[in-house]
Design a protein around this nucleic acid. Structure first.
Lengths: 236, 236
DNA sequence: CGGGAACGATTGATAACACTATTGGTGGTG
DNA sequence: CACCACCAATAGTGTTATCAATCGTTCCCG
């Protein structure tokens, strides 16, 4: 658990947040502060602080006389890291992973292009080294170290993009890659084609070729999407 | 102002948030609750609720004996809508707009592909109508209605992608398009090439051609990036 | 039957206080 | 002189009590 349960209101959030995120309380359901006080055995102040956080995430809205009302999903701040964690922890884990993976697939080609355009030269060169290490550990079938390398590879590209928002997605990508491995959605040995493509991306970025980097990265993410599609239930 | 200043802690946030977001308080700067109480003339409870929200956005961390410390920018939840609004309202407006535009450029081609794959047929068809209207109003030089149409066009594609996270970016796209127009970064008459490309995207999505839609959308966003690049100061 | 005034439930805000974690100093000791 | 244990000051954390503001509901009057 990365989340610090140091404070009481965080412990309330750790229960209430996942419950709402999982849809246990339908849109429109209302809580009352006194209900939360009694339910969690905390004081009004603590209950309110928890509500304030939920409110800032767009999960609920608090109004006098009405109470604390669960908002429709489309109003949620789906990029909030805490909300993402809550959903990854719940039953909707696979759905959240698929959403994140699609987002990642959409974003990474563009990020690779930007990295090739404006990343610092030395950092760009180090990507090639990383890709080589990936090839070695991949061929050796060391899946756990391979995953670590894979994570840093993709993280670093997002960071090299020089765009704070793309860089802000690096946790998302990490979550997807780790989740994918821990759910056995990875082949026991990375496909040679995938290894080759990672090297191609790294070299294109190093050589400052945005279009090539973008195309190669797109090849990577579409391959992954196809792999995930197989695990998808027939009726989505 | 969209933000409801209905509550007192929101009014505190409306001052404190933008100030921190603008970098007026460097990373590492610490506040104290009593300082906030005095500075804003509010009770401790209100100050604490404001801090809780800032904390959930990753802007600050609150610890006993240390106070409320401003965190480094890389820890901020840069996708938080409130934070985005604060930065758009401040001096860094142009930087934020550029970040958002790059994000948008990275995301929209992929979103267009997904929309072509799985959007409902009737909705997909309506995109073509929208594109036609854009062409008409664009040629007529009605810039304000054109912007509205442009906004709904791009919003709807993100929503048609069937991915909640991509759909969650529609406000971002709106912000970018509106900001672009209000800052006179648009030509007085939309370029014919841009109009043609919008129609191409719409038709490809309607016809269920992901790759074509993606390529056409990529052409749109790169054109915009080039246009913005010209307005960029020489030394970034 | 419609509009508006009164009611009451519920959040919003303040104050005062006890508790606790953290830190930094201080003094003793090897 | 360096290091460790202890202590005290400091700020956040949590509780309780009380009043104010808000707003959906209800009920009465025209």
């Amino acid at each position: 658990m990365g989340t610090t349960h140091r404070t009481l209101h965080n412990r309330v959030l750790a229960v209430l947040g996942p419950a709402i995120a999982a849809g246990e309380y339908a849109c429109g359901h209302t809580f009352t502060l006194s209900g939360l006080e009694d339910g969690f055995g905390v004081s009004r102040t603590v209950a309110r602080e928890a509500v304030r956080v939920l409110e800032s995430m767009g999960l609920v809205v608090s109004r006098p006389r009405t109470g604390i009302r669960v908002r429709p999903r489309r109003d949620w701040s789906v990029f909030d890291p805490q909300l993402i964690r809550w959903r990854l922890a719940g039953d909707a884990r696979m759905d959240q992973l698929r959403s994140l993976n699609e987002l990642r697939a959409a974003v990474e080609p563009g990020a690779a292009a930007l990295a090739a355009e404006r990343g610092p030269a030395d950092e760009r060169a180090r990507l090639v080294v990383l890709a080589e290490q990936m090839t070695l550990t991949g061929r050796a079938g060391k899946l756990d170290t391979f995953m670590d390398l894979d994570v840093t590879f993709h993280r670093r590209i997002l960071e090299l993009s020089g765009n704070e928002m793309l860089a802000g997605l690096s946790d998302v990508v990490t979550e997807v890659l780790v989740g994918r491995t821990s759910y056995d959605l990875m082949p026991h040995q990375p496909r040679p084609e995938a290894l080759r493509l990672h090297t191609a991306v790294a070299q294109a970025i190093r050589d400052g070729l945005p279009d090539v980097a973008e195309a190669a990265m797109r090849a990577i993410v579409t391959e992954v999407s196809d792999a995930l599609k197989d695990t998808r239930p027939p009726q989505g």
